[in-house]
Design a protein around this nucleic acid. Structure first.
Lengths: 232, 232
DNA sequence: AATTCTATTATTGTATGCAATCTATGGCTA
DNA sequence: TAGCCATAGATTGCATACAATAATAGAATT
């Protein structure tokens, strides 16, 4: 009972969706890229109909922007959206941590440990490194067996890559791998609060590495320059 | 520069989406209802194409299930999904409360207060009562100005109505209006922790009113009957 | 009567076509 | 040369057509 094509499960529209999503996350399609239905369909060997469907899905996930009559483009979230996104991630990933703390099975621990090892191995390859770092978070979410939680964490992690692409510092290892290992240790030990704190710190430092200006008011912005000029 | 029709903003597909969503939330289309593309399109005066697009959106929001080659139907979340959903809601609405506490503007306070008054007024009308209770939560989320947070809370609140429809006790006022007022008071006073606790309790009681069996294992289930039979 | 097989019908999956809208190019005026 | 308008080309919005799959009903067999 072999499959017709390499359909990879569940309709060709989903395949288009996955292909585009992957391309966006890998930053092969950087934020702002126009996404014309025709060319995409031609390239992927499907009609505009299916491309359209995929684009609708992606827009619902916040990865593409769908401007009526003007076509789709890879989303370019603002700095403020970025900050809010990480705030929301924080809230959800805290729930992940609380759910998992002290409840990891031997098998899950092995999976996570292996993944972290993979991250360490790929430390030099910038692209893979980013992807793996994100996957660690989605992997954790997966283990909660909470469908909505999984979906939202997945979405937010995906969108985070857009933020990083737009505002991230170029040469930063986006997620400190050592922090992943520490987090895993706390989770195994069931030290919920410490794990939560670690996750908070972890996401904070990602945010800091990207969304530099946490200060919002002119006051704060100027303060930086005032100090630099000895005017404080 | 009048609009062609009563398009209500942003493409007719969105209109279809809104119509179906509304119908689902109002339980005019109860969980499990089949959603054939052409009957819907015929009824709404659009082609299958647009209905399809709307169904894809709804499926992404978890309101409809999209079974390949077998058509769409209003989602029937399981009890466990329901429990998980409220867990996720909890995490997000805590962030809402923390964000808003002590930061409500005079105008926002008035809006919320008026809404609660409306809830009190509609206490007898079962259908409107449910809708308004949900809208209170989405209204709060709205005020955070956090786009992802708003989207997720909206989704979860909408899906909650499915859970309530499936598992809710018939004659319960789904949200205790008085709790909404109390919550608002705490938010105004900036008593963040108390507000968060109140929100937690509030959502807990909704959960309890619906998802009665929190027990999960056969052990727990049997325990109930054991006690009843004096076998404890 | 129950059951399986088959033919028919209904419904979804996908491509394509036409009208509406946007975008870009080039000429025109100042 | 700079700015503006018009026209041509490209792209989206939507409907429809056809193919593929599932659902249904009826007949034939046991």
């Amino acid at each position: 009972m072999a499959k017709k094509t390499s359909d990879a499960g569940g309709g060709r529209s989903q395949a288009v969706h996955r292909a585009l999503k992957r391309a966006i996350i890998d930053q092969a399609l950087p934020p702002g890229s126009k996404l014309p239905e025709d060319s995409i369909g031609e390239r992927l060997g499907v009609s505009r109909t299916l491309v359209r469907e995929a684009l609708v899905r992606l827009s619902q996930e916040g990865l593409v922007e769908l401007r009526p009559n003007k076509g789709a483009a890879v989303a370019r979230p603002s700095l403020e959206e970025g900050r809010n996104l990480f705030l929301t991630r924080m809230a959800l990933e805290r729930l992940v941590v609380e759910t998992l703390s002290g409840n990891l099975t031997r098998e899950q621990i092995d999976t996570l440990s292996a993944h972290i090892a993979g991250e360490e191995a790929a430390r030099t390859e910038h692209a893979a490194s980013i992807r793996l770092a994100g996957e660690f978070h989605t992997l954790l979410a997966q283990m909660t067996n909470n469908a909505s939680l999984i979906r939202y964490v997945n979405e937010l992690v995906a969108r985070s890559s857009l933020i990083l692409a737009l505002y991230g510092r170029p040469h930063s290892s986006e997620c400190a791998v050592s922090e992943h290992r520490e987090l895993l240790d706390k989770l195994i030990a069931g030290k919920t609060d410490e794990a939560a704190a670690l996750m908070a710190h972890h996401l904070d430092s990602i945010t800091a590495r990207a969304l530099l200006p946490t200060e919002n008011s002119i006051q704060d912005v100027l303060a930086t320059y005032a100090v630099a000029e000895g005017l404080a």
